[in-house]
Design a protein around this nucleic acid. Structure first.
Lengths: 151, 151
DNA sequence: TTGAATAGTTCACCTATTGAACTATTCTAT
DNA sequence: ATAGAATAGTTCAATAGGTGAACTATTCAA
C-alpha cells in the first residue's frame, strides 16, 4: 500500500512537472511584451477579481505582502494597473487593470488558450471533463486540509 | 466551442494553481533543513537520475545552463552533491548526491508523501488511476508538441 | 481613549533566472 | 592532420522574485 502510494505520487509529480514546464514554455512564447509569466499571472488575477487588494494576491499565490508590493510596483510602472485608496477605510488599496492592461490580458489569453486548446484535441469531451473534475476535487481537498492546519 | 474551451482552461488553470500552491505549502512545511523547494526538486532529480549532467537538469526544468550552475553551487556548498568529471570525455561533469543528500531526500520524501497521501484518501483507486493517466497523456501530448515546434 | 489589529510599504538580504562572453574539450570535414 | 564547428560548463552583471522585521497609517474594540 505504501509502495503503491509512493509510486503514484512519483508518477503524478513527474507528469505535473512536465505539464507545468510546457505551459510555461507556451506562455513565455506568447507573452511578447516586456512582462514575465509571474507578472502576467498577477495581472490576470487582478483582471478576474475586481476590487482586489495586495493581501488577496498574497493569499492567492502563497507569498508575503512585501513580495506583492514589489510585484505591483513593477506592473504599475508599466502602466498596466492602477491603485485606488478606499475612502471609507483608508487602509485598503484596491487594484484594477488599466485599458492597456486589459488589452494585454485578452490578447495573450487568446494566444495561450489557442496553443493549449490544440493539445486538448487529443482528448474526448468526457475525458477532459472527468480530468478537470478530479483536479478540482483535489484542489478543494487540499484547500480544506490546509485551512484545517492553520486554524 | 471556443467559449467552452476558454471556460475549461480557466477551470483547469484555477484548480492547477490551487494544487500547486498547496503542494508548495506542504513542501515548505516538511523541508526543515536550510534548503529551498527549488533546491530540493533539483536534488531529488539528481538522486533519481544517476550520472546526470547540468544540461539534463536545464532541459528538465526549462531553464538556462547558467541558472543550473548557480543552483548546483548552492547544493555543493551545503555538502549535498558532488561533481565527477568524465575522464573519457572531459567536457561532461556528472552529478551525484552525497550520503547526507540521500538521507535528506528520503526523509523529506516520506514526510511530503505522507501529507499528500492523506489528501488522496478522499479518492477511490479507479479515480486516482484515471486522473494520473490523463495527466500523463496531457504531458506526453505537450512534450511532443513542443518537440515538434523546436525541430 | 488607549491599545490591539489590519493594510500596506520599505529595507536589507538572499535565491533564481537570463543572456552574453568565456574556457576547455571533442567532433567533423576537407 | 588540422581548422573550425559543436558541445559542456562557468563566470559575470543585471533583473525578478522572495523573506522577515520594522515601520506608517488607519480602524476596531474594550
Amino acid at each position: 500500500m505504501q509502495i503503491e502510494l509512493k509510486e503514484l505520487i512519483n508518477r503524478y509529480q513527474d507528469a505535473m512537472n512536465r505539464v507545468y514546464r510546457n505551459v510555461n514554455i507556451i506562455m513565455k512564447d506568447k507573452i511578447h511584451s516586456d512582462i514575465t509569466t509571474d507578472q502576467f499571472s498577477t495581472l490576470q488575477y487582478i483582471q478576474k477579481h475586481k476590487q482586489c487588494t495586495s493581501t488577496d494576491i498574497a493569499h492567492e499565490f502563497g507569498v508575503g505582502k512585501s513580495a506583492v508590493t514589489a510585484q505591483i510596483n513593477r506592473l504599475y510602472e508599466k502602466g498596466l494597473i492602477e491603485r485606488n485608496r478606499d475612502e471609507s477605510d483608508r487602509r485598503n488599496v484596491y487594484l484594477h487593470v488599466t485599458e492597456k492592461g486589459i488589452e494585454l490580458v485578452h490578447y495573450t489569453e487568446d494566444e495561450v488558450y489557442a496553443a493549449i486548446g490544440k493539445n486538448l484535441t487529443h482528448f474526448d469531451d468526457e475525458e477532459i471533463q472527468s480530468f478537470i473534475r478530479s483536479l478540482e476535487k483535489l484542489a478543494s481537498v487540499m484547500d480544506n486540509d490546509q485551512r484545517g492546519v492553520n486554524s
